[in-house]
Design a protein around this nucleic acid. Sequence first.
DNA 1: ACGTTTATTGATTGACGAGTCAATTAAAAC
DNA 2: GTTTTAATTGACTCGTCAATCAATAAACGT
Lengths: 196, 196
Amino acid sequence: MPKIGMEPIRRSALVEATIHEIGARGSLDVTVSQIARRAGVSSALAHHYFGSKEQIFAAAMRHILTLYGAEVRGALIMAKTPRQRLEAIVRASFAPGQFRDEMIAAWLNFYVQAQKSDAARRLLHVYQRRLRSNLFHAFRRLAPADEARILTRGLAAMIDGLYIRQALHSAPLSGETAIGVLLHYIDTSLPEGAPT
Amino acid sequence: MPKIGMEPIRRSALVEATIHEIGARGSLDVTVSQIARRAGVSSALAHHYFGSKEQIFAAAMRHILTLYGAEVRGALIMAKTPRQRLEAIVRASFAPGQFRDEMIAAWLNFYVQAQKSDAARRLLHVYQRRLRSNLFHAFRRLAPADEARILTRGLAAMIDGLYIRQALHSAPLSGETAIGVLLHYIDTSLPEGAPT
DNA sequence: ACGTTTATTGATTGACGAGTCAATTAAAAC
DNA sequence: GTTTTAATTGACTCGTCAATCAATAAACGT
C-alpha cells in the first residue's frame, strides 16, 4: 500500500495517538505498541519515524505547547489594555480546546517527563518563560516591579495548580469556574492604580 | 541475624528509602530493588513486608501526608484569628521540613500515581478535603460564602502550583518567597471587612 | 523493465523488573 | 534441647516492552 508522502501523516497521527493514549490511561505507562495501535500502524513504524519513545513524547509535548501557544497568541491580538491581556491569557489557558482531560493528563505527564528528560525540561522552560514574560509585562503596567513579580508568580502558579487539580478529578471545575477564580485574583490583588 | 521486632524498623526504612529514591531519580521509575538496596535489604524483603510495589508507594504517600498533617496541625494550635490560621497553613506547607526536593518530587509522583491507583487517589482526596476545609472555614469568617469558595480554590491551587514549579527546578523559589506570594494574595484579595 | 527509494510489518532480541519460593539463620518459646 | 516462629535472601519464573532487522510491496525515476 505504500503511498508516498505518508511521513507527515503518520507522524501527526502518532502524536495525536500519544496524547489520547496518555489521557485514556491517565498515566505515563503507555507503550509504543499501544500508541501505534491507536494510530493504526505497527510499533515498528513508530520507531522508524521517531527513533525512540522519548522522541515520541517530545513530539507530543511540542505539539501541545504549539497548540497552547497558538491559543494564547490568538487571544492576545484582540487584547489592548494590560488587564485585557491578562484576561486573554487566562481564558486561553482554560479554553475548551485546552482544558480537556487528555490535555490535562498530558500536561501532568510532561511535568514528570521533564524531571528525567533534558529535552522535555527545555521545552517546558520555554513555555514557562514565555508565559511568565507575558504576565509580567502586563502586570508591570499595572503595578510596581516588586508587586508585578509577586503577581506573576502567583498567577502562573494558580494556573498550574488549577490544571493539576483537574487531573485528579476530585473536584472537577468547569473552565469558567477556574477562570472566575483567576480573574478574581487579578482584580482584587492589583493596587488602586491604573484600571482596565 | 533475625532479631525479633524488625518489621516496623524495616517498614519505615523502606518508606524513607522510597521517598529518597524518588527524589534522587526525580521520577516514578524506581524499582523495588533500588528502594530495597537503599534501605539495606533485599528486594524480596520489601515484597515480604509490603506485598507489592503499589503498596510501598501507598505507604510512602501515607507517611508524607502524615508528616504534612502534623506540620499543619502544629502550626494551627498557635493560631487564633482566621487570618493567622490561613498564614499558619501556608507557612506549614512551605516549612523547611516539607519544602524539600525529595518531598516535592514525591508529591508530583503521587499526583501521577493517583491517576492509576484508587488507593493513591483516595489518600490524596482526604488530604485535599482537609486542606480545603481548613481554608474555607478560615475564609468564611473573613468573607461571604461565595467569595470564600473562590478564595479557597484559588489559594489551594496556588499552593499546589508553587510546589509543581519547584519540581521543575526552573525558577527555584525559596520557601519564604513562596509564602510571600501566598500571603500577598490573601491580604490583597480579602474584602475591606474584618481584619486579623 | 529495472534499480532505487519509501512505507510497512512480523518476528526477534535483549534487558529489565515484579513477584514467588524454597532454603537458611537465629532468636524465642516451651 | 527441641520446636516454633520471625527475618532474610539468592535464585528463579514469567511478563513486558523498547528497539532492531530482515523481508515485502508499492511508487518513482530513467
